[in-house]
Design a protein around this nucleic acid. Sequence first.
DNA 1: GCAGTCACG
DNA 2: ACGTACGTGACTGCT
Length: 618
Amino acid sequence: MRTHGYQLAGEPVEIHVVEDARDVREFEDWAARQIMAGCPVAFDTETTGLDIYSTGYRLRLAQFGDSRTAWVLPVERGRLFADAARRVLRDLPRIVIHHAAFDWLVADRCLGVRLEQLYPRTADTKIMATLVDPRQVQEGGVGTGLKALSAHYIDPAAPDTQEDLTGIFRSLKLTKAEGFANIPLDHPTYETYAGLDVLLTSRLLEALERVHTELGIRPALLEYEHRIAFICAHMQRTGLVCDAEYTKALSGRLGEQSEQYEHKARRYGVESINSPKQVADALLGMGEALTERTAGGALRVDKPVLLALADLDSSWERIGARTPNPLADAVIRSKRAGKWKSAYAQTFLETLDASGRVHPFIHSLAARTGRMSITRPALQTLPGRDVMIRRAILADEGHVMISCDFDAVEMRVMAALADVKRMKTAILAGEDLHSYTRSLVYGDVDDPGGHLRALCKGIGFGKIFGGGASGVARMTGADEDSVRFAMRMYDRVFPEIKRASNVWQREAAANGMITKTVTGRRLPLDRDRTYAVVNYQVQSAARDCLGQALCDMHDAGLLEFLRLPVHDEVLASAPAGEAEGVARGIEKAMNFDLYGVPITASADIGKRSWGSLKGGDY
DNA sequence: GCAGTCACG
DNA sequence: ACGTACGTGACTGCT
């Protein structure tokens, strides 16, 4: 056994590297003592990378530890070590992990200790920290990474283990990805940092438990978040079928298209269509007038600007207002094809496992409002209007796709939270909320083309986002005077929104600029934009509507069918013969009462591909 | 590493 | 009283 010493917060700690059967026994004796004493044990893994389901994926080190002692098991070296890690992991009554979803799935895949067995025994320090302060360091918060949290709660001098390792990879002439897969298993820094991660996690648990008690964070909220993390990890493990043949062909087609338009743009002097500066210069050279500027002061040449120059509306249909600028047309078409190829088609193919499934990372508690995010691939942001990308994602063999989305959930949540009387009455009466608002604002007038309704809808969104007249005007295309008039009327007919905003802002100011949500979430506000409190409250509570629905689906035995959460929507895959029942079960979980406001959702049953739910024919 | 852009809810 | 759209992930160019 080799032992590395280290100092944390002025105290000596030991990192034992297990080398043989005798060391394994010593490690297991230590673990047995922890179990006897009822002490939680921190667990972490070092692996060949992040793509847990890729072929050749390996668990390299498994680490266990408490606040003073860490044990590093070189699992990659053989069965002896993997078996020990498996035995201990199965026996520990309390496990602490920083970002459990990842290590759960690594242990599930590489050690055969199932996610279902690990979840009930785990405390996730990342979840705990996020419930204290969900902000990243760049947003002025404590951060939620191990390094930032350690510096804040344990020892300002704690090393940035990931960053320092990256430096070592560089000195070994390895990229970051190559480094994690190839650094010698007995590299002393690798071993030390692997051990430090569990020591820090163990100490973080102690600190965060104290903070949770001090701040009165409800244990039920913490438990609920762990449950959601489990449900999301389950969905990640299941993954989704990707039609590889279709995706390869699509990727080729998009590549050709992108190149063809890129070539066309080159004729007008644009070498890189992704360089806003080159595009702006070339357009000016063609005599176009560019008036809008970005926040940084550069001439704006984004999609709306280019579409207008190409005489296209937001649906890419000819307007007929001017002669299309051929460069603007070529640039937007090339950019779109290029992005769709690299961000979607290529990422699908890169992340495919051996059985043709993608396993996106579902970060169950990602945004500062508690919203989830999905990466590798970013399945929450697939193009929706054109179904060519969604066509690549399929229900399982013999299954059909089901999606169920909440009806205007953020408007309903706002009505519920702010107790907006007339809004609640209209929702309960089953009225179209935006038409109803139009009638309150404008009285009984004709609304040919639904422009007034659209304006009222835009103002509703403006309220949810905390926006002003100019934002609503930009979104709806209405002139600012009409927007200002409608907004004044809106505040008059729904006075409770403004009132709630004021109350929330006042309460936050009295509570260290932190607003508390109905589920007990702490959401820090930025001092210079406290008006965002309406958005934070509404977005966060809407996220918890989805979270509660996911828990209810789990209770109803529907977890095996769930594939993805998409903010206000759940995607599922079910055998064709059972689809109706599964769809009704999901609907049941997504229909409930929130402070007297019905939250409703309805499911669509599609065909094999995700695209079929958006009108695709397969 | 930041700015700009673009995909989504 | 005024004015502020909200939250993400991912890619490319440029420094």
